[in-house]
């Protein structure tokens, strides 16, 4: 008997769903073992029945529930609660679901500031009142991770999560498991670059120039990006972005990590830990431009980002 699966996306970009499709051959092997009862990106199951007459939203029961995206509005909350009710094991897929993700950068602003900008502060827009209608769900006070609203059983972080881990977690569940998590390692633990535990010092460099490397040589011949004086969040970010093998994805592009897999463990304090990591190689963390936003780029939920009173314009 294939395992039943229901999938939903909330405040999301669909990158997690594309990552599921990017499992390639593994996808074709897994598919016969799964029975998708609800997944809007692929299957035409409707909340209000095939004739659109239902009185209330309904998602079918399933053993496994997968939800991507954060919780931004009343409808997301409602869908998530319905998913929790109807599924036995709920998976938070991706960093929006786990930590708020990029859209939780909006938590630095109030709802009114955002709506003012979008509907009355854009040069191409004919200014108008905020949309208000029974089919336009109101925003919640902040952009939330799933576990701020319901109990989550398994978290597969990443922006997007690597297909290896999606396949791995689902395979573990198919074998009767009920828990799954990534090993607690840092991106640096999987990064082959040369580290000398010191940097040239000075203010932290912005990515206004490329990192130094010889393109004919592998990453094992390149100096650590932090030690080159740039901010790389590898030391405080959970490893796994390149799947079971392979080097960290951003470093593969010769660019620094920005923390898309989130903290190494739930109790970690990445901002404090990163300051320590920088200080230990002679970089001054106070010189990081736009520090609060950049260090919480994927983790603005759980109260990590909040509107600041009287913030100077543009900072």
């Amino acid at each position: 008997m294939p395992a039943t699966v229901a999938e939903e996306w909330l405040n999301a970009c669909s990158g997690c769903e594309i990552s599921i499709l990017n499992t390639g051959g593994a996808l074709l092997e897994l598919l016969p073992q799964l029975s998708f009862v609800h997944i809007p990106v692929l299957i035409d199951h409707k909340y209000f029945g095939p004739l659109g007459k239902g009185a209330s939203m309904e998602i079918p029961e399933a053993v496994v529930g997968i939800v991507s995206g954060s919780v931004r509005n009343e409808e997301h909350k409602h869908v998530l609660e319905e998913m929790r009710k109807k599924t036995k094991i709920l998976i938070a897929l991706g960093s929006c679901a786990a930590y708020g993700g990029i859209p939780s950068q909006a938590n630095m602003f109030t709802r009114d500031e955002v709506f003012e900008k979008v509907f009355r502060g854009s040069p191409s827009t004919d200014a108008a009142p905020d949309p208000k209608h029974e089919n336009v769900p109101p925003w919640l006070e902040s952009c939330k991770a799933l576990d701020e609203v319901v109990k989550v059983d398994i978290t597969i972080p990443g922006c997007p999560p690597h297909p290896d881990w999606i396949a791995d977690a689902i395979t573990a569940l198919l074998r009767g498991g009920t828990a799954w998590s990534l090993p607690e390692r840092s991106v640096c633990d999987t990064c082959p670059v040369i580290r000398e535990k010191k940097s040239a010092g000075g203010p932290v460099k912005r990515c206004l120039e490329n990192v130094a490397f010889n393109p004919e040589e592998g990453l094992d011949k390149m100096r650590c990006i932090n030690e080159q004086g740039f901010l790389c969040l590898g030391p405080v970010t959970l490893a796994g972005c390149a799947g079971k093998s392979g080097v960290p994805r951003c470093v593969q592009a010769r660019t620094p990590c920005r923390g898309c897999f989130g903290p190494i463990r739930k109790s970690a304090r990445p901002m404090v830990d990163m300051m320590g990591a920088m200080t230990s190689i002679g970089l001054d963390p106070k010189t990081v431009v736009d520090r609060r936003a950049i260090m919480n780029r994927y983790t603005g939920a759980h109260g990590n980002l909040k509107p600041l009173p009287a913030r100077p314009a543009g900072r």
Binding site: P103, A106, V118, P137
Partner: peptide, 12 residues
């Protein structure tokens, strides 16, 4: 039904 607000939170 969804709005994320990129135009605002890109400021800064």
């Amino acid at each position: 039904q969804a709005l994320r607000g990129f135009e605002k939170f890109c400021e800064g």
